[in-house]
Amino acid sequence: MLGERSDRSDRTRDRLATLRERIDAGMDRREFLRTVVTGGYALGMAHYLGVDDFLAASDDEVPVVTALVRSDPDDPFSLEERVRYVPADWYAAVENAFELNELLARVAFTGYLGSAVVPGDYDSGTASISIGVSSAESSIPDAIREFADDVSIDAESFIEIEDVEVRPDSAEPRILEDPVGGAPSGVACETPSSMATLGPALYDPSTERSFFTTAEHAFEGDGDPVGDQLTVPIQGAEQLDLGRVSRAHPIADVAAIEPNGSVAPTSWIDAPTPARVRGQLTRYGLADLLARDERLEKVGALTGHTTGRVQGVDAVTCFTEDFCRRGQIRWGGEMDLTDGDSGSVSYYRDPEGDDGDVLVAGFNNARTWWPGQSYVWGISAYRLTEKHGYHF
């Protein structure tokens, strides 16, 4: 008898898994309800399957997760999903564009320098892909266009991209005035070889540890930077030792620094208007901002506080290395970042949070320096979570 109950339980789990897969593949609400009734499921299975939001949407809308937000502002591990309902035709177009962009990154045809998904506004129900190609290989293979369906492709050709232009800076770096309460994001930090911007606290849910963070490329010494020291200059005093690099991720361009106990990593950003990190945006959260023509903010050690619009999401960047960086965000303009600003984050004011709450969009690691394009790029927060488990 016990074996029979176990077999029935296994079959039920298999049927529920199949139903969940059909929902993810595009089953509409009417078909879902018919399946529930004819299949003998209880309507309470909607909660078990995690499709309450699916049933709450109207016929021409679908729910998407736009952010991971702390339910308790003081507990960085109390993340909950935030859902927004978006037009179904817009969602389908953007999803197709994400899939095509992933195909482009996998194929990486000769001359491919990168690409980004550019969702249209909600009324248009469209999405496009911006592709960069070298001038010597300015055409996109016909096989790629065959997969495009209703996604428009905007190709731009570039002359050979030279080494990174080093822009002379006359601005004084933003120096931490008082370390009491921790070291906030947006102030200058120093590695053994250069200056960068300190990012907000980065959390590892698997160990419930917190880290200081900045750009990995700021550690320009030979080899692995693990063990290198990170410090912050203090106004009118000697520099403060924060700790040493515990984990380095060169493709993500992120370094996680183990605190040495002198001060703790903080979720505060030293912005003109107080900013406290309450969570982070997802891929569809970024797509939503672009669809609504919203702006991001950042605070860098050299350029300070700037704002700019999102230009592309889920971007692939192959401009600077012999490998491609995926899950990038493009926003603002090239003047929003300069040498010394790397390690800062782009963020968005949380419309549903308390005053000063913000959601991190991504790291700021570099800017364009070639004619024809102007934006800042860096790894998106959601990609950092997907690949390495961290969150803000």
Rank of each mutant, 00 (worst) to 15 (best):
S152C: 06
L104N: 02
P87N: 08
A116Q: 05
G125L: 13
T126P: 06
R145W: 00
G132V: 00
A127S: 15
S138F: 10
V86G: 07
G125R: 13
E95N: 09
P141M: 06
S130M: 01
V117G: 04
A92H: 11
I144A: 00
Y91C: 03
Y112N: 08
S128R: 11
E99S: 14
S152R: 06
R106C: 10
L104Q: 00
G132Q: 00
V164S: 08
S134E: 09
Y112K: 09
F147D: 11
S139E: 10
V164L: 10
D121R: 03
A155L: 12
A88M: 12
I144N: 02
E137P: 02
A92T: 11
A97S: 13
L104P: 04
F147N: 14
F147Y: 12
E156I: 07
W90H: 14
T110E: 15
P87W: 09
A88D: 11
S152T: 09
T126G: 03
S139F: 10
P141V: 04
D150I: 08
G120K: 02
L100I: 00
P119M: 05
E160M: 11
I159H: 14
A97D: 07
G125K: 14
S135H: 06
E137Y: 08
V117H: 01
I159F: 12
I131E: 00
N101Q: 00
V86Y: 03
L103I: 12
A92Q: 10
V94Y: 15
Y85G: 10
D142M: 11
V133S: 09
S139A: 05
E146V: 10
R106E: 15
T126S: 14
A155P: 14
D89L: 08
F98C: 01
L100A: 00
R106G: 09
Y112I: 09
W90G: 11
S139D: 12
S152I: 04
D123Q: 13
D89E: 15
D89M: 06
W90T: 10
D142S: 13
S134D: 15
I144Y: 03
T126M: 03
A155Y: 07
S135D: 13
F98P: 01
P87V: 12
F158Q: 01
A88R: 15
A143L: 12
T110A: 14
D123H: 08
I131H: 02
L104G: 02
I144T: 03
A92L: 09
V118W: 05
F158K: 01
L103D: 08
G114S: 05
I140L: 15
A108N: 15
D123S: 08
L100F: 00
F109K: 07
Y91N: 07
G114M: 04
I140K: 02
A88Q: 14
D154R: 07
Y91V: 01
S152G: 05
P141E: 02
S130P: 02
G132W: 04
N101R: 01
P87C: 06
F158Y: 01
V86T: 05
S134L: 05
G125D: 13
V164W: 03
A105W: 02
G114E: 03
P119K: 01
E162M: 15
G125Q: 13
S139H: 11
I159K: 12
R145S: 09
S157R: 01
S128N: 08
G125S: 13
F147Q: 13
S115C: 08
L100T: 03
P87F: 06
R84D: 12
S128K: 10
A143T: 13
P119Y: 03
D89G: 11
S134T: 15
